[in-house]
């Protein structure tokens, strides 16, 4: 079994998107999501599409990587499209066959919804995963949420937990592959038999994996304590985040995008979702 973790992986680079402040990236991602859900008609979608394509170009990532990242969502997108095509009611059916009636509005609606799903995934992964290291992301999140620590929310601890969890995903995947190979060498069979048999076959993988995860957790805790880790209090940072001109500019562009979408919704009525 080969595990595909292309989706959600950081891609090395030095584009404008890579250099944006992670805090700004989190904020603009939220704004982008709001904008894409406000978009109501074809023209608003065209604007969003243009912006998303511009993002892809700006990131200087290969299109293959981005399309590969969309693969896991393809099924949901297609499923939604089919539902919309068959169940959307319009004025006049384009095709009427037995109980199936397909309307022009249904087709457009399906297209827009699929587009929305794909753009949503592309843009969010573009901001948050492809161009941002997990460490930068959790740092940004921690600082954005830091006001909450005033009311007693352990923001630093959550951020640290998230960093550690992300850090160990590749390690655990590698470990799983090793254990699987070891059990296969003893004749374990993961790919045949019924559901119960397959579920049982997982036991020899899960147990050693848990044991090693606990061992690693213990080792890590000891190592952190050896370096005098006592939580977030009084901790200084090597890389202090500073929002610069480009960060403000980008935020402005996203706000303008949102405003554009609202204006189009009001003044340019078209096929709406």
């Amino acid at each position: 079994m080969k595990m595909d973790i292309a989706f959600g992986q950081y891609c090395e680079g030095n584009s404008l998107l890579h250099r944006l402040d992670p805090r700004v990236k989190i904020i603009i991602t939220i704004l982008y999501i709001v904008a894409i859900f406000m978009a109501k008609n074809v023209f608003a979608f065209a604007l969003m599409l243009a912006f998303t394509v511009a993002l892809v170009i700006m990131s200087r990532l290969s299109v293959r990587v981005i399309l590969g990242g969309l693969k896991p969502i393809m099924f949901i997108a297609l499923f939604t499209a089919v539902i919309n095509i068959f169940f959307y009611k319009g004025d006049e059916p384009l095709v009427a066959f037995w109980v199936i009636k397909i309307y022009k509005e249904g087709l457009i609606n399906a297209g827009l919804i699929v587009l929305r799903i794909l753009m949503l995934l592309t843009a969010t992964s573009m901001f948050l995963t492809y161009t941002t290291t997990p460490i930068a992301l959790t740092d940004g999140l921690e600082q954005l949420l830091s006001p909450l620590s005033k009311i007693g929310v352990p923001v630093h601890d959550f951020a640290m937990m998230m960093t550690i969890a992300l850090r160990f995903i590749p390690t655990l995947i590698e470990e799983t592959e090793k254990i699987m190979n070891a059990q296969k060498a003893r004749g374990a069979d993961f790919s045949s038999g019924g559901l119960v048999k397959r579920a049982k076959a997982i036991v020899p993988i899960i147990i050693p994996l848990f044991v090693s995860a606990f061992r690693r957790a213990g080792d890590l805790a000891t190592a952190m304590e050896c370096r005098c880790y006592t939580g977030g209090k009084g901790r200084t940072r090597m890389n202090v985040l500073r929002a610069g001109a480009r960060d403000f500019l980008f935020t402005f562009v996203i706000i303008a995008l949102g405003a554009g979408v609202i204006l189009i919704n009001i003044y340019a009525p078209g096929y709406s979702v």
Partner: peptide, 15 residues
Amino acid sequence: FKAGLVMQYPEYQLF
């Protein structure tokens, strides 16, 4: 079964 392989650090596969 014919070529029994013991991987590195095999004690981590006990379950």
